[in-house]
């Protein structure tokens, strides 16, 4: 007499048994697969390290025109390595059928929703920002209280280098909530605003002319972009704001210093009078700070 199990094995075809195996989410783990996976992870890590170092070095060696182009390619290259590596690992260790995929994403969604909410939020924000272009490597941005050049773009966060040469790591998920001010948006030039203050009785035409000439004469000025002087009245005096662009946004502080040096020399030559400091105390708004 044939046992029931043996009879079933004879009745149920091999394809059906294979389907049962395919329903399992995890594939068979072998020694070769494990070695391959470790090798793939190490290769990906080395690749990303090399890309970061190589592009960082190369972008500072080439002409300005190509600097931002090279820097902006970093997140895409790193993203490409990540996608290839993760796809390879998933293919090796998971049976990615339609049902398995549904089950897996459901499980992951629950797990990540509770345990790694902020982490996943940062990764998604990073991907969104990559396509939205809110900030790119090489841009000069203000996020919250921090201002500086974006020098790194990771999976979870970006790195800013401030004018004081401090590196600040900021998670991408601030993109959802915080305003991001980008000074150059992928271009080499970023507007620099320079403020000077004078007594109400000052010859405004002369001041405006000197400010224009200060911008035109500075070697840092990008003459192809507009130069503008605007005025604002305060109780204690008149504020003049010179808006112009350096050829390289990195020069913004040395540029503003150069503009002020040139302009103040000319102001002194013409004996222009500065506002009375005691009146500034009466102004509730106070003088506006210069913006980058």
């Amino acid at each position: 007499m044939i046992p029931l199990s043996a009879a079933l094995e004879m009745v149920v075809p091999a394809a059906a048994r294979a389907e049962t195996a395919a329903q399992r989410i995890l594939a068979d783990v072998t020694l070769m697969k494990t070695i391959g996976a470790v090798f793939a992870v190490l290769l990906a890590y080395a690749g990303m390290f090399l890309i970061e170092r190589l592009t960082g070095w190369l972008s500072e060696k080439v002409a300005r025109r190509y600097r931002l182009l090279i820097k902006q390619s970093v997140p895409f290259l790193k993203g490409l390595i990540l996608i290839v590596t993760v796809s390879y690992l998933l293919d090796q260790f998971l049976n990615l059928t339609q049902n398995n995929l549904l089950a897996l994403t459901g499980t992951l969604a629950v797990a990540l929703g509770f345990a790694f909410k902020d982490y996943v939020s940062s990764i998604l924000a990073g991907v969104v920002s990559l396509f939205e272009g809110s900030y790119q490597v090489g841009d000069r941005v203000r996020i919250g209280d921090h201002y500086g050049e974006v020098v790194g773009y990771g999976l979870r966060s970006l790195q800013l280098v401030t004018p004081d040469d401090n590196t600040i790591t900021i998670p991408h998920n601030l993109l959802w909530t915080d305003p991001i001010s980008n000074a150059n948006s992928g271009k080499l030039e970023a507007q620099v605003a320079t403020d000077v203050y004078f007594d109400h009785r000052v010859d405004v035409d002369l001041v405006v002319d000197i400010l224009y000439q200060a911008a035109y004469s500075s070697q840092y000025t990008q003459l192809r972009l507009p130069i503008l002087v605007v005025m604002e009245e305060h109780l204690w005096g008149t504020q003049f704001r010179l808006r112009c662009y350096p050829m390289d946004a990195r020069d913004e502080f040395v540029y503003r210093t150069d503009l002020l040096k040139r302009a103040k020399r000319a102001f002194a030559h013409h004996g222009l009078s500065y506002p009375h400091p005691q009146l500034a105390l009466l102004d509730p708004a106070g003088p506006l700070p210069a913006e980058g």
Partner: peptide, 8 residues
């Protein structure tokens, strides 16, 4: 060289 470095 100057053109590549954004000079006019």
């Amino acid at each position: 060289a100057l053109d590549d470095n954004n000079f006019f």
